[in-house]
Simulated assay, not measured.
Amino acid sequence: MSIKDGKDYLYLIWKSEKSRKQYIVGQLIKNGQYEFQYYSDVETAINDGFMPLLCFQDLNKVYKSDKLFPIFASRLPDRKRKDIKKILDKYDLEEYDEYILLKRSGARLPIDSLEFIDPILDTDQAVKRIFYVAGVRHYLECSGKNCEKATEITRGDQVYLKQEKDNAYDNNAVQMLSEDGKVFGYVPRYYSAGVSALLEKGRNIVCHIYNVDQNKNCNECIKAIMEVKK
């Protein structure tokens, strides 16, 4: 888990349909009670089309609650569902814990472009993250509808990570390279600062292709797994 100063953090990510950029628009904190506040990306995201959540209209306020905010809890499967055991097994949960389920599932819905991610905050601990590779559409030069060119990349392939400090959009940008040294995408921006810090510390990062799905659009066709041992 991403714990800092005794607090457990989740980032709320929003993806613009117009620019396809992902923004960290908020952070949810569990520290005895729940806290939600907007993140530094939110104003830039608003300029790109993001609408503040109806129950969190004040961009500067820290909202607090003894229970998980209903707007987030409602994104989770009902604990009374007949197949809830199967869902819990999928996320390696022995019992229903809405915060951990939120963290592990991301709570994505087809009706919006929001999801939660588990940030990389403590770069001295073990880290394991599975994520979609960013920027694939640009590097594979595909149509954006399917990933025919992703056939050159297969499950289990080793991936190399390289900082790109002169990147015009993200000074923490981390390129993802195939075994033959070709760039095929980037670490998502919401993980780039953490991964960049891991690289600068000389941590032993092992990264492989986790899955390739040619039937998905080019924003979600290649998934990678990254692990750092303590």
Rank of each mutant, 00 (worst) to 15 (best):
R104W: 09
C207T: 15
I87K: 03
S74Y: 06
N204I: 13
G26V: 04
K162L: 04
K162H: 14
G106E: 01
M226N: 01
P77K: 01
G106Q: 04
H138W: 13
E35R: 13
A134F: 09
L121R: 10
L88N: 07
E35H: 12
N172A: 14
K30T: 09
D8I: 06
D41Q: 00
K4W: 15
K90C: 07
G181A: 08
G144K: 00
N211P: 01
E115D: 14
S65E: 11
T151L: 09
W14A: 02
T44A: 14
D92Q: 13
A173I: 05
D92R: 14
D170T: 10
P77I: 03
D8A: 08
L68A: 05
I120G: 03
C142I: 01
V228Q: 03
M226E: 02
Q214H: 11
K229P: 07
N172W: 09
S19L: 08
Y91L: 01
V42Q: 03
G185L: 12
Q37M: 12
D180L: 04
W14Y: 00
I71K: 15
V206N: 15
S16F: 01
D170W: 09
S113K: 07
E179W: 00
M1I: 05
A107P: 02
S192F: 03
R203A: 15
T154R: 01
R20W: 08
Q158F: 12
K7N: 12
K149G: 08
A107K: 01
I120V: 06
R203T: 11
